[in-house]
Amino acid sequence: MPAIADGPIIEARGLKRTFKIRKGTVEAVKGIDLTVQPGEIVGFLGPNGAGKTTTLRMLCTLLAPTDGTATVVGCDLRDDPVGVRRRIGYVAQSGTTTGEAVAGQEIVSQAQLYGIDRKTATERGKALLKSLDLDGIWDRKCGSLSGGQRRRLDIVMGLVHEPKLVFLDEPTTGLDPQARANLWHHIRDLRDRLGTTIFLTTHYMDEADSLSDRILIVDGGKVVAQGTPQELKQRVSGDAITLTLRGRKDTAQASEIIGGFEGADTPNVDGNVVRAHLPDGSTALPQLLRALDKAGVDAIGLEVARPTLDDVFLTLTGRSLRD
């Protein structure tokens, strides 16, 4: 085994991929640098067509990069693709099983392709099914499972050889809200219990937000920002402060007070409402109230809104993620 304990589990530099189409070429991925540490859950967030899946497929050896280098679990992507394959798990967006196949048999045959014997494969498969609340489906046909169950079975298929790193491509697309929440719980549990590093793509803000330790925002084939969900939200827009006054006479004074806070932008007055952004709104709130009180400003409402990842995305790309 290569030494991976101390270094990053994924290190990609300048990863590029162009596709030839009838009218020339399309640059799907325009040079992606990324580093993932062991044990992290990293969310690869971006709109459809941002290059998420293309990047993921390159890191999984399913697509050869046009340019750039990457080391995945200690193996070079170009020189040792088989080494990478041995050490990673990959759960594709499209699923992994045929409806007519029996779940347990699919698990065992997949494990055998990794050189695992039938007995070990059966034990591991059953244990994994149990940990993903799928006990009892061993003898069932994959087609008879619910959408959520089948998705979890896909994850079992990707984990049966106990990879250190698992790639999940849009893991909850097409699932109902309850099944999504359930799957999130299982994904987190996987990392907490087994220490598996998880790299997932998603175009859902809430998914990236609640699941990832760290988010990479991709747009137009490039990583446009990265950080913890908290960092990203703070860095980009700050918290929105909305102060409502009883009348209009104090707005100028209120603006001056808010604008005086460190890192505040220029307040915007609209009737009796003053709006501004502060880097850390909740910490500033008590001071702000005191200062307003001292100056005799008659405030009747004060609101702090934390920015969402949607705001972050909008600020970074000028577009909403839902477009």
Binding site: T98, Q110, G115
Partner: peptide, 17 residues
């Protein structure tokens, strides 16, 4: 083609087989 659509081919391709 059916197996490819179901993701079976891809999951086998990502194995060291």
């Amino acid at each position: 083609i059916a197996e490819w659509r179901a993701g079976v081919i891809e999951r086998m391709l990502v194995s060291p087989a």
